[in-house]
Computed example of a mutant assay.
Amino acid sequence: MSYSNEYESFGGSPFAIDAARDERAAFIRKTYAHLAGAIVVFAGLLYIFCNTPAIRDPLLNLMMGGQWFIVLAAFIGVSWLADWWAHRSTSLTTQYAGLMLYTVAEAVIFVPLVYYAWFMLGKPEMIAQAGFLTLVTFGGLTAFVFISGADFSFLRGFLMLAGVLAMGAIVVSIFFPMGDGFGLIFTIAMLGLSAGYILYDTSNVLHHYRTDQHVAASLALFASVALMFWYMIRLLMYLQSND
Rank of each mutant, 00 (worst) to 15 (best):
P124M: 11
F182M: 09
Y115C: 07
A97R: 11
G139W: 01
M100E: 07
M160F: 11
G179H: 01
T202K: 01
L113C: 09
F175T: 07
F119G: 04
V172Q: 13
M120R: 01
I109D: 08
A128Q: 12
V136A: 06
T134K: 02
F132H: 12
Y116K: 12
V111P: 11
L135S: 11
Y115G: 08
T93V: 06
G157A: 06
G179E: 07
W118R: 13
D180M: 14
A169D: 14
L199C: 06
A107S: 15
I109E: 11
A195W: 00
F154M: 07
F154H: 09
F110Y: 04
R210C: 00
T211H: 00
T187V: 08
L155C: 05
L165F: 05
I127T: 07
I147A: 06
F144Y: 10
D212C: 01
V171K: 03
A166Y: 09
T134G: 12
V104D: 10
F152M: 12
V104I: 10
F110Q: 06
T137L: 10
D201N: 15
F132M: 15
N204F: 00
G179L: 07
F132Y: 13
E106P: 02
F175N: 13
R210W: 00
G140S: 06
G140E: 00
H207R: 04
F138Y: 06
G157D: 15
V108S: 13
V104C: 10
F152N: 10
L184N: 08
L133F: 03
H214Y: 08
I109G: 02
L121R: 15
